[in-house]
Amino acid sequence: MNHQSPANRSEAKPPAPAPQPLHQTDADEDDENVKQLDECSSLYLLMQDCVVRTNKDWKQCQPEVEALRECYERRKERKGQ
């Protein structure tokens, strides 16, 4: 009989978890913050897209910034009532 002791037996190890991308927790926190904007979250994402698309040229993104500001003000007024 050929018995192998547990110390000699090769045991499969579970695969190591994939490393999270750098700043993944920051991105997760950003997602949570955006969700808290409720109905304004889509406007925030549009503004963010504009900023990326224009290489951070805020002047070109003023319509998106203004739409987000107006939405946020309306939201704040409703919550204050």
Rank of each mutant, 00 (worst) to 15 (best):
N2Y: 03
N2R: 06
Q4C: 00
A7C: 02
A7V: 07
A7H: 04
R9G: 00
S10W: 03
S10E: 09
A12R: 07
K13I: 03
P14K: 07
P14D: 08
P15K: 10
P15C: 02
P15V: 08
A16G: 04
A16N: 07
P17Y: 03
A18N: 04
P19F: 02
Q20C: 00
P21T: 03
L22A: 15
H23N: 15
T25I: 12
A27L: 15
D28L: 14
D28W: 10
D28M: 12
D31G: 09
E32S: 11
V34Q: 08
K35E: 14
Q36D: 12
Q36F: 05
L37R: 09
L37W: 05
D38H: 06
E39Y: 00
S41H: 00
S41Y: 00
S41L: 00
Y44K: 07
L45M: 12
L45R: 11
L45K: 11
L46R: 13
M47R: 13
Q48W: 02
C50H: 05
V51H: 07
V51P: 00
V51C: 04
V52R: 13
V52E: 13
R53C: 01
T54P: 04
T54N: 07
N55M: 08
N55W: 01
K56A: 14
K56W: 11
D57N: 15
D57K: 10
W58K: 11
K59V: 13
P63D: 06
P63Y: 04
E64W: 01
E64D: 09
E66W: 01
E66Q: 12
A67L: 01
A67Q: 10
A67F: 01
R69H: 09
R69L: 09
R69M: 11
E70T: 13
E70A: 14
C71K: 04
Y72N: 13
Y72R: 14
R74E: 14
R75H: 11
E77G: 04
R78V: 04
K79Q: 13
G80D: 10
G80V: 00
G80C: 00
